[in-house]
Design a protein around this nucleic acid. Sequence first.
DNA 1: GCCAACGTTGGC
DNA 2: GCCAACGTTGGC
Length: 142
Amino acid sequence: MAKPKYWLIKSEPSVYAYAQLAQDGKTEWTGVRNFEARNNIRAMKPGDLCLYYHSNEDKAVVGVAQVLTPPGPDSTAPDEDWAATFMGPVTAFTQPVALATIKATASLKDFPLVTRGRLSVAPVTATHFKQVLKLGKTALPA
DNA sequence: GCCAACGTTGGC
DNA sequence: GCCAACGTTGGC
């Protein structure tokens, strides 16, 4: 498979937590209602890896998800021009990486959670992705 | 629960 | 095409 791209996706744990994704095995990632986030979804391809951030209650990156399908229309808004993909679980972090930790890490100064707090789907560099994995004390499954 | 940040909308 | 008003998000 081609080299994956990396993303940050956000969800409120009370709406759809990572544990729910792990339990479901896959879910349609819907509800994005922001043009920039939509365009980011449209740039996704199967095999891309996503850091999964819990906003509000947790304020921490808690795991890694992966893109399962090419982006298509958001089935929750069939008459509007939005996008969605199916996501599957990859691994939960051994240790969640708190927003405060990310903000306190100099090399993550440009991480999208810091610079673009409200963007729900954002690209992440391979370097940042690896750093967050390390902070989460987690390795990707082989 | 408050408020700051920011994206979107709509009037001009 | 600008910009003020508004609504929503999300950290604190």
